[in-house]
Design a protein around this nucleic acid. Structure first.
Lengths: 95, 95
DNA sequence: TAGACAATTAGCTATTCATCTAACTATTGT
DNA sequence: ACAATAGTTAGATGAATAGCTAATTGTCTA
Protein backbone atom coordinates (compact mmCIF):
# COMPACT_ATOMS: atom_id res chain seq x y z
CA UNK A 1 0.00 0.00 0.00
CA UNK A 2 2.94 2.30 0.53
CA UNK A 3 3.79 1.43 -3.07
CA UNK A 4 0.49 2.87 -4.21
CA UNK A 5 1.05 6.19 -2.47
CA UNK A 6 4.62 6.32 -3.74
CA UNK A 7 3.29 5.76 -7.24
CA UNK A 8 0.69 8.50 -6.80
CA UNK A 9 3.34 10.96 -5.61
CA UNK A 10 4.45 11.70 -9.18
CA UNK A 11 2.23 13.96 -11.31
CA UNK A 12 3.10 12.18 -14.56
CA UNK A 13 1.98 8.86 -13.09
CA UNK A 14 -1.26 10.34 -11.77
CA UNK A 15 -1.96 11.71 -15.23
CA UNK A 16 -1.26 8.34 -16.80
CA UNK A 17 -3.91 6.84 -14.54
CA UNK A 18 -6.33 9.56 -15.59
CA UNK A 19 -5.71 8.87 -19.28
CA UNK A 20 -6.37 5.21 -18.58
CA UNK A 21 -9.71 6.03 -17.01
CA UNK A 22 -11.31 6.21 -20.46
CA UNK A 23 -10.05 2.76 -21.41
CA UNK A 24 -6.92 0.67 -22.04
CA UNK A 25 -4.12 2.26 -24.03
CA UNK A 26 -0.78 1.15 -25.43
CA UNK A 27 2.51 2.31 -23.97
CA UNK A 28 3.14 4.32 -27.10
CA UNK A 29 -0.22 6.06 -27.05
CA UNK A 30 0.33 7.02 -23.42
CA UNK A 31 3.91 8.10 -23.96
CA UNK A 32 2.83 10.40 -26.79
CA UNK A 33 0.87 12.54 -24.32
CA UNK A 34 3.90 13.40 -22.20
CA UNK A 35 6.99 15.50 -22.83
CA UNK A 36 9.48 12.85 -21.68
CA UNK A 37 11.33 10.06 -23.45
CA UNK A 38 9.86 6.60 -23.93
CA UNK A 39 12.32 4.94 -21.56
CA UNK A 40 11.33 7.40 -18.87
CA UNK A 41 7.68 6.58 -19.46
CA UNK A 42 8.54 2.90 -19.36
CA UNK A 43 10.02 3.41 -15.90
CA UNK A 44 6.84 5.16 -14.76
CA UNK A 45 4.77 2.27 -16.09
CA UNK A 46 6.92 -0.15 -14.12
CA UNK A 47 6.22 1.77 -10.91
CA UNK A 48 2.49 1.71 -11.61
CA UNK A 49 2.61 -1.99 -12.45
CA UNK A 50 4.54 -2.88 -9.29
CA UNK A 51 2.02 -0.97 -7.23
CA UNK A 52 -0.74 -3.00 -8.87
CA UNK A 53 -2.39 0.11 -10.28
CA UNK A 54 -2.18 -1.14 -13.86
CA UNK A 55 -1.97 -4.48 -15.61
CA UNK A 56 -0.59 -5.25 -19.05
CA UNK A 57 -1.67 -7.37 -21.93
CA UNK A 58 0.31 -7.96 -25.11
CA UNK A 59 -1.44 -7.20 -28.38
CA UNK A 60 0.83 -7.78 -31.31
CA UNK A 61 3.72 -5.41 -31.09
CA UNK A 62 2.01 -3.27 -28.51
CA UNK A 63 1.70 -3.58 -24.77
CA UNK A 64 -1.73 -2.51 -23.61
CA UNK A 65 -2.07 -0.95 -20.19
CA UNK A 66 -5.26 -1.38 -18.19
CA UNK A 67 -6.22 0.64 -15.14
CA UNK A 68 -6.82 -1.45 -12.02
CA UNK A 69 -9.40 0.70 -10.29
CA UNK A 70 -9.87 -1.57 -7.30
CA UNK A 71 -6.30 -1.07 -6.08
CA UNK A 72 -6.72 2.68 -6.40
CA UNK A 73 -10.01 2.49 -4.56
CA UNK A 74 -8.67 0.40 -1.74
CA UNK A 75 -5.74 2.76 -1.12
CA UNK A 76 -7.55 6.06 -1.54
CA UNK A 77 -10.86 5.24 0.14
CA UNK A 78 -9.20 2.89 2.62
CA UNK A 79 -6.93 5.61 3.89
CA UNK A 80 -9.66 8.26 3.72
CA UNK A 81 -11.84 5.94 5.75
CA UNK A 82 -9.34 6.03 8.61
CA UNK A 83 -10.28 9.66 9.03
CA UNK A 84 -14.01 9.21 8.73
CA UNK A 85 -13.91 10.53 5.16
CA UNK A 86 -15.42 9.05 2.02
CA UNK A 87 -19.10 8.22 2.48
CA UNK A 88 -19.61 5.61 5.18
CA UNK A 89 -16.48 3.48 5.77
CA UNK A 90 -16.54 3.29 9.59
CA UNK A 91 -12.90 3.51 10.71
CA UNK A 92 -11.76 0.10 9.45
CA UNK A 93 -7.99 -0.50 9.80
CA UNK A 94 -6.68 -0.95 6.28
CA UNK A 95 -2.91 -0.94 6.62
CA UNK B 1 -2.00 19.13 -4.51
CA UNK B 2 1.07 17.28 -5.68
CA UNK B 3 2.53 18.32 -2.34
CA UNK B 4 -0.19 16.41 -0.55
CA UNK B 5 0.49 13.17 -2.43
CA UNK B 6 4.22 13.62 -1.94
CA UNK B 7 3.59 14.04 1.77
CA UNK B 8 1.44 10.91 1.83
CA UNK B 9 4.12 8.86 0.08
CA UNK B 10 6.06 8.38 3.31
CA UNK B 11 4.72 5.85 5.84
CA UNK B 12 5.97 7.80 8.84
CA UNK B 13 4.07 10.87 7.70
CA UNK B 14 0.89 8.89 7.08
CA UNK B 15 1.17 7.48 10.58
CA UNK B 16 1.66 10.95 12.03
CA UNK B 17 -1.61 12.00 10.42
CA UNK B 18 -3.31 8.95 11.91
CA UNK B 19 -2.03 9.79 15.40
CA UNK B 20 -3.39 13.30 14.92
CA UNK B 21 -6.82 11.96 14.08
CA UNK B 22 -7.60 11.59 17.79
CA UNK B 23 -6.72 15.20 18.50
CA UNK B 24 -3.86 17.75 18.50
CA UNK B 25 -0.48 16.62 19.81
CA UNK B 26 2.86 18.25 20.51
CA UNK B 27 5.88 17.59 18.32
CA UNK B 28 7.48 15.74 21.23
CA UNK B 29 4.48 13.52 21.85
CA UNK B 30 4.38 12.60 18.18
CA UNK B 31 8.12 12.09 17.91
CA UNK B 32 8.04 9.70 20.87
CA UNK B 33 5.97 7.24 18.84
CA UNK B 34 8.57 6.83 16.10
CA UNK B 35 12.02 5.25 16.01
CA UNK B 36 13.75 8.22 14.37
CA UNK B 37 15.54 11.27 15.72
CA UNK B 38 13.75 14.51 16.59
CA UNK B 39 15.31 16.47 13.72
CA UNK B 40 14.09 13.82 11.30
CA UNK B 41 10.59 14.12 12.72
CA UNK B 42 10.86 17.87 12.49
CA UNK B 43 11.61 17.53 8.78
CA UNK B 44 8.56 15.29 8.35
CA UNK B 45 6.41 17.86 10.16
CA UNK B 46 7.68 20.54 7.79
CA UNK B 47 6.60 18.49 4.77
CA UNK B 48 3.15 17.98 6.26
CA UNK B 49 2.88 21.68 7.12
CA UNK B 50 3.92 22.80 3.64
CA UNK B 51 1.33 20.48 2.13
CA UNK B 52 -1.28 22.10 4.37
CA UNK B 53 -2.08 18.80 6.04
CA UNK B 54 -1.31 20.13 9.52
CA UNK B 55 -1.26 23.49 11.26
CA UNK B 56 0.74 24.52 14.31
CA UNK B 57 -0.01 26.50 17.41
CA UNK B 58 2.50 27.42 20.11
CA UNK B 59 1.61 26.44 23.65
CA UNK B 60 4.34 27.45 26.05
CA UNK B 61 7.45 25.51 25.17
CA UNK B 62 5.55 23.11 22.97
CA UNK B 63 4.41 23.31 19.38
CA UNK B 64 1.01 21.71 18.98
CA UNK B 65 0.18 20.05 15.68
CA UNK B 66 -3.39 19.97 14.43
CA UNK B 67 -4.66 17.78 11.61
CA UNK B 68 -6.24 19.69 8.72
CA UNK B 69 -8.76 17.14 7.54
CA UNK B 70 -10.20 19.26 4.76
CA UNK B 71 -6.95 19.29 2.80
CA UNK B 72 -6.71 15.53 3.14
CA UNK B 73 -10.31 15.18 2.07
CA UNK B 74 -9.93 17.41 -0.97
CA UNK B 75 -6.87 15.52 -2.22
CA UNK B 76 -8.03 11.99 -1.48
CA UNK B 77 -11.69 12.25 -2.43
CA UNK B 78 -10.99 14.79 -5.15
CA UNK B 79 -8.65 12.42 -6.91
CA UNK B 80 -10.82 9.40 -6.22
CA UNK B 81 -13.73 11.31 -7.71
CA UNK B 82 -11.91 11.56 -11.03
CA UNK B 83 -12.33 7.82 -11.29
CA UNK B 84 -15.91 7.68 -10.20
CA UNK B 85 -14.87 6.44 -6.77
CA UNK B 86 -15.93 7.71 -3.37
CA UNK B 87 -19.70 8.15 -3.01
CA UNK B 88 -21.15 10.48 -5.59
CA UNK B 89 -18.62 13.01 -6.93
CA UNK B 90 -19.53 12.94 -10.65
CA UNK B 91 -16.24 13.15 -12.54
CA UNK B 92 -15.35 16.75 -11.70
CA UNK B 93 -11.93 17.84 -12.99
CA UNK B 94 -9.88 18.62 -9.92
CA UNK B 95 -6.37 19.01 -11.19
C1' DT C 1 15.33 -14.26 -42.86
C1' DA C 2 15.79 -9.30 -42.99
C1' DG C 3 13.92 -5.06 -41.79
C1' DA C 4 10.81 -2.21 -39.31
C1' DC C 5 8.36 -1.13 -35.32
C1' DA C 6 7.12 -1.23 -30.11
C1' DA C 7 8.79 -1.24 -25.85
C1' DT C 8 12.08 -2.45 -22.35
C1' DT C 9 16.69 -2.89 -20.18
C1' DA C 10 21.49 -1.04 -19.45
C1' DG C 11 24.25 2.46 -17.95
C1' DC C 12 24.91 7.09 -16.62
C1' DT C 13 23.96 11.77 -14.23
C1' DA C 14 21.76 15.22 -11.41
C1' DT C 15 18.50 15.96 -7.95
C1' DT C 16 15.76 14.91 -4.11
C1' DC C 17 15.00 12.50 0.18
C1' DA C 18 15.43 10.34 4.81
C1' DT C 19 18.51 10.11 8.15
C1' DC C 20 22.06 11.41 11.55
C1' DT C 21 24.87 14.59 15.03
C1' DA C 22 25.85 19.14 16.50
C1' DA C 23 24.53 23.73 17.11
C1' DC C 24 21.08 27.21 17.57
C1' DT C 25 16.42 29.65 19.02
C1' DA C 26 12.70 30.17 22.01
C1' DT C 27 10.27 29.68 26.30
C1' DT C 28 9.87 28.80 31.18
C1' DG C 29 11.26 28.77 35.96
C1' DT C 30 14.36 29.72 39.63
C1' DA D 1 20.57 36.20 34.31
C1' DC D 2 21.11 30.97 34.16
C1' DA D 3 19.96 26.57 33.49
C1' DA D 4 16.58 23.37 31.67
C1' DT D 5 13.36 21.96 28.22
C1' DA D 6 11.12 21.85 23.40
C1' DG D 7 11.88 22.20 18.94
C1' DT D 8 14.14 23.70 14.72
C1' DT D 9 18.08 24.78 11.63
C1' DA D 10 22.79 23.62 9.75
C1' DG D 11 25.55 20.54 7.52
C1' DA D 12 26.80 16.03 5.93
C1' DT D 13 25.90 11.34 3.88
C1' DG D 14 23.91 7.31 1.52
C1' DA D 15 19.96 5.73 -0.97
C1' DA D 16 16.33 6.45 -4.09
C1' DT D 17 14.31 8.92 -8.12
C1' DA D 18 13.56 11.00 -12.69
C1' DG D 19 15.67 11.97 -16.56
C1' DC D 20 18.60 10.99 -20.80
C1' DT D 21 20.99 8.17 -24.88
C1' DA D 22 22.29 3.79 -26.61
C1' DA D 23 21.59 -1.03 -26.92
C1' DT D 24 18.57 -5.07 -26.50
C1' DT D 25 14.30 -7.99 -26.83
C1' DG D 26 10.09 -9.27 -28.94
C1' DT D 27 6.68 -9.28 -32.76
C1' DC D 28 5.13 -8.70 -37.26
C1' DT D 29 5.54 -8.51 -42.40
C1' DA D 30 7.62 -8.41 -46.85
Amino acid sequence: MSDVFKALADPTRRQVLERLKSGPKSAGELAADFPVSKPTMSAHFAVLREAGLVTTERQGKSLIYHLNVSVLEEALLGFAGLFGLGSDTPKGDTQ
